[in-house]
Design a binder for these strands. Structure first.
Length: 246
DNA sequence: GCATTAACACGTA
DNA sequence: TACGTGTTAATGC
């Protein structure tokens, strides 16, 4: 399987950061949990960067500088590929924030985050993250919920890894991508090409196309040009497919 | 048997 | 035009 080319060696926020616009701030869910003075401090520190497909948002082993969020686009979180093949752990959809575990411990990033398509990424500097953690109850509540949900996500991921049915793997990965709390802005429609989904799930594009046809026939999703619509999130998350045994 | 790569025609932005 | 989709054929585990 071919992976997206890495177009630049550095990271997006290090090289091309700028101040966020009002429209971009509106896409950051936890800002609404802050008091006006807390929000003011957060907004002043927030930065935004534009990433092309294949660009790195953060790199394995680098010291932590930001807590990251996705404003627009699609990201994937994967392992360090220097010792073996790339393993994608999860996708990040717009509105999702990640890396809080690393930021909390002031350690090095333990994953690579790369853009699967042209994306806009927001970053909150570690110092501001720490300050909000010390001063804002609303922020603490958001981070706590985030951690709790991610714990559930990883438990579910172990189950998905053990599925040998490709159709179900696609279904469960789609459900994870649509997670309402970690990705609150996704809504019912997801703009993702079948090639991108293939990278995410770890299957070929052709097999993903076949899986989408199956899921579509079950009425769980509807396939559109350049994207798809989730019709039955519950079924994607926990539904079963009969194996066609007569 | 099943998934993968390669290759193709076709439709859409 | 460039890209995404849907399909088929050949190949490998």
């Amino acid at each position: 399987m071919q992976l997206p080319k890495i177009s630049r060696p550095g990271t997006v926020l290090r090289e091309r950061k700028r101040a966020p616009t009002e429209a971009e701030l509106a896409e950051i869910p936890w800002l609404q949990s802050l008091t006006p003075p807390e929000r003011e401090r957060a907004v002043a520190a927030l930065v935004v960067g534009d990433a092309e497909a294949g660009d790195h948002i953060c790199r394995f082993g680098r010291p932590v500088t930001y807590w990251f969020g996705l404003v627009d686009g699609l990201l994937k979180m994967s392992n360090d590929d220097s010792q073996g093949p790339v393993i994608t752990f999860t996708g990040v959809a717009p509105g999702g924030w990640f890396g809080e575990g690393t930021v909390l411990k002031h350690e090095q990033y333990r994953y690579n985050i790369t853009a699967l398509r042209k994306s806009r990424v927001a970053g909150l500097p570690v110092e501001t993250f720490d300050w909000l953690l010390d001063h804002s109850i609303g922020f603490n509540r958001f981070v706590m919920h985030q951690l709790n949900e991610r714990l559930g996500q990883f438990i579910a991921a172990r189950e998905i890894d053990r599925l040998n049915n490709p159709d179900l793997r696609v279904a469960r990965n789609l459900a994870a991508l649509f997670h309402p709390l970690l990705s609150p802005n996704v809504g019912g429609v997801l703009r993702i090409t079948q090639q991108e989904l293939a990278y995410l799930v770890g299957l070929s594009r052709q097999r993903v196309n076949q899986a989408l046809t199956t899921l579509s026939a079950k009425g769980w999703i509807r396939v559109d040009y350049g994207g798809l619509r989730v019709l039955n999130l519950v079924a994607l998350r926990s539904g079963v497919l009969d194996d066609g045994v007569p």
